[in-house]
Design a protein around this nucleic acid. Structure first.
Lengths: 193, 193
DNA sequence: GTTGTTGTTGAACGATCGTATAACAACCGC
DNA sequence: GCGGTTGTTATACGATCGTTCAACAACAAC
């Protein structure tokens, strides 16, 4: 039997266990029993903290998205005051710790595949990506105040980052994280020249 | 009861049913019964044409990949002799019929999520993406004979296309297929300038 | 210490999963 | 036509799925 934990710690443990299951077994392999075994907990407990496994996965997506958002903000804060440096830090943070971990990449790909078929996941996805794009647009506007439209550059940079991230996640990508960063910087200059 | 079909037609029907299931229900929702219902066939038949559902999915990935490859080649053939036009046709074909259909996009995202966890799918993925990159590299070399390295540009273009494709697939993307094409052309010029 | 609330377990339920197989239908060679 | 091969169905099996719930353990209030 497991020792009783504080409720928020237990809930957090279940979120992390869900993320680990999604990374290891994919969207098709995650299950209540797998999650609870991963968390070292009895299968009945998922119903106590979440309404069901679907809600647990949704909460995990929200938590993962928030974590990434905080890491992005931290990278920007560390970049100093120069607008271009702040924008570049935001864009390249996806290829550095703590975001560029194999586990997080795997979890994220699983969320992509769930987004198409689960409306609740799709809503969270829209929120997360909306925030991400909004962050890029704000930093672009700060770096290039004269620019008329920030939407398309934000779309373009998001797409390149996601594409590079995807191939890094699927393994055997014929490039390094450092090369990915360099490509993002090149793309940024091409878009805002 | 279903009328008997020619074996290759029946097998092809099962491949298409599998693809439709992956698009509609995702990697987590596909099942023998769903596939066979979609194909209008009894569940036992999947074992007759494939060793099991895993093999059916793998065969579907191979068939889908071949179809995309043929569509890409057709787009190049239609583009005429100019090297740059041929390269651009190869790159933008992903955003035009028959490749840019909602069903194909959905199926493809499901394959991405399976790639991380199923070695057989991963092998097929490596083959398909190897061919795609090889195609880009050959067209780049033809268009820019003096270029030393074609690997990184091919990586970069593949990533942008996948990223744009992903967001188009997940719905509510804040851009059109035409804008995606224009971005790919811009990226091409930035890489090979 | 007693009582009541909350966390947790482990087993049970019905549903669905993938696969195997016996029976039947359709086709082919003769 | 007839026998043998192949396609197809329907069902059955064991495993696993998500969820529920009675029972028990841990803690808080008093």
């Amino acid at each position: 039997m497991t020792i009783r934990q504080r409720p928020d710690e237990r809930r957090q443990g279940l979120l992390e266990a869900t993320a680990r299951c999604l990374a290891e077994k994919g969207a098709a392999g995650v299950s209540v029993r797998a999650i609870c075994t991963q968390a070292g907990v009895s299968p009945g407990l998922i119903g106590h903290y979440f309404g069901g496994v679907a809600e647990a996965i949704a909460a995990t997506y929200r938590w993962t998205g928030d974590s990434v958002g905080q890491a992005l903000d931290a990278a920007v804060a560390q970049a100093g005051p120069a607008p271009r440096a702040r924008l570049l830090a935001y864009l390249t943070a996806s290829f550095r710790p703590p975001i560029a971990s194999p586990e997080l990449l795997g979890t994220w790909v699983a969320f992509w595949s769930l987004t198409r078929n689960d409306p609740a996941i799709a809503a969270i996805h829209a929120e997360i990506y909306g925030q991400f794009r909004h962050g890029i647009e704000a930093l672009i506007a700060a770096a290039h105040p004269a620019l008329a439209d920030t939407r398309l550059p934000a779309v373009a940079l998001t797409a390149l980052i996601d594409g590079l991230w995807l191939e890094l996640s699927l393994g055997h990508a014929p490039y390094s994280a450092a090369e990915a960063e360099a490509l993002v910087e090149l793309w940024l200059d091409a878009l805002l020249r």
